[in-house]
Design a protein around this nucleic acid. Sequence first.
DNA 1: TTCGGATATGACAGCGTTATCTTATTGGTC
DNA 2: GACCAATAAGATAACGCTGTCATATCCGAA
Lengths: 334, 334
Amino acid sequence: MTRATIKDVSRVAGVSIKTVSRVLNKERYVSDDMRQKVEEAVARLNYHPSLAARTLAGKRSFQIGLIHDNPSPYYIFNMQAGVGQRCREADFRMIVQPCDINSPGLVDDIGALIDQAQLDGIIMTPPVTDVGTALAELFRRKIPVVRVQPGTDLTATSAVYIDNVQAADDMTAYLIALGHRRIGLVTGHANYFASSQRLTGYRQALQRAGIGFDAALVFPGQFDFPSGAAAAEALLALDEPPTAIFASSDEMAAGVLAAAHRRGVSVPGQLSVAGFDDTDLAQVVWPALTTIRQPIRDLGYAAADLLLEFGERIERRQLPHELVVRGSTAAPKG
Amino acid sequence: MTRATIKDVSRVAGVSIKTVSRVLNKERYVSDDMRQKVEEAVARLNYHPSLAARTLAGKRSFQIGLIHDNPSPYYIFNMQAGVGQRCREADFRMIVQPCDINSPGLVDDIGALIDQAQLDGIIMTPPVTDVGTALAELFRRKIPVVRVQPGTDLTATSAVYIDNVQAADDMTAYLIALGHRRIGLVTGHANYFASSQRLTGYRQALQRAGIGFDAALVFPGQFDFPSGAAAAEALLALDEPPTAIFASSDEMAAGVLAAAHRRGVSVPGQLSVAGFDDTDLAQVVWPALTTIRQPIRDLGYAAADLLLEFGERIERRQLPHELVVRGSTAAPKG
DNA sequence: TTCGGATATGACAGCGTTATCTTATTGGTC
DNA sequence: GACCAATAAGATAACGCTGTCATATCCGAA
């Protein structure tokens, strides 16, 4: 028993294959009578149209690509979940393509992907969003693109994002409100525009509170655990150490926690620690992290939605973030 | 400028399209002369064959599916990375399909996926591996299947796996060697066959050491953080609490750590804690977890390899696990 | 010298859809 | 009552490849 084709359906339903095609594609000018006959035949034969044939014959492939170079399992998992759900709703398929933004073959790989699979659209996540050569290639091919949290050419493509500046401002202001005056900041990887945005938000909140900016309290990180731990070691070794450390990712915040534990510094008693992202990690370390919830899954859903709803038309959508207070922050001593 | 087709290549190279096809598919009976001409033309035109056309015309689709219903971002991320890498090497594409093993539409969804995309093979991860109806559907379609860590019908399909019994035995024996006699066990979700296998390994090691099995020390978990914390609370509240707790996943071990922290029980001073998997998590909690390294990425790579190398032929491959000692375990006091 | 298998290339049908064009049929308007 | 637009359905040609079959050449053995 081989799989049913559109011809089988048309024979069983007693109509032409074009009519079957019309029903499948929800085109106009089909009588209810015909539609019903076709739908019955489809169900009876358990017919599923061949994507390959649809792609070859038509202009659409019913597939979109998700391109990323992101080492965070949590981020990718949730992004895929969001994009995947929207795809399922539209009966589209999601092709996931990890890549390496430093590879010389990056642009060719992306081009090959689009050519081979005839993708209907592309979603990119940071830091791929800001690779100029890759963007140029996509423009050349005139393929609809949605970028998640782009850092450059903001109006060149559709985009979904959160307000990183405001988010970092919120967290910093929260720590200030608790009574902290010396607040350390561990920044993120320089490849990510979000890193500098968060620094901006941090400075903005300090300034509003009339607290001077102290460059000695800002330490560069890579978004990962070791760099968070290293930054904390350095910050805690200062003559006048901070009473709170705001890390630009939960992973780095976990590193800060580990460094504090190692040094016998109690959290939040002697040191408040804050993260960013609200990944699963935030709730499985001890104490649980005060952090900024970034709706990664929703960002993915929204990205796919823009692609499917608007295609080439450029649209932008900002999603809300949220300050989540848990056990890792408290008022400073004294 | 529209994309190049095989006709363009054949024209530029001055050969028939069939010869181009032969070169592309690395078939026999092509002279070096021809091959070179074709390759030059392919490069010059930046030609990438249409997957849709290849799938429609040929017997293969150059796509395999990865079906999972697994809530662990880390597991999925690494599995995808492994499968994805092997796919890239073979110029195949990976279609990721999350699913819900409790959904009544599961079997239909899988069938639709295979029909629509004409997949060349399927990889399944636990617990989907052991859903009888889904397996039956795959057999009906005679599609090559590789299961990762299957729990039932072990010889029905190709499979890749680690020796869970031995791994749990190794960890338990290690704790015994440290001097522990009362060792708590937090088991995994009942849907996963690995859960009972690990219990078997635990009992096996106890028995070999002449330590009686105490059912009060075994607590059911769900592989997640809250259930680990709950289990630890219960175990630590016993009249005679264990000096070590072996959790069947790192997430649960993190829960155990949190419970210990909350109760002021020092780790590893008063309580040793061990996990399973060696996910990223193991190194970002404090203290870092002693655990069993499960080569998830390698399992994915091996699964794809079996599919691509052997197709329908049933093959099995066992991969090595590894005991990783970190700071969360030590000899018991006294 | 002849024959046959291995090697090398091409012509062309067909895969299962969608797109285009054509052909009714219907219903409202003047 | 004639005409035109809107509606409804079908016939058939692509789409870009692979599979099949036909054909040509080469080389070594009988």
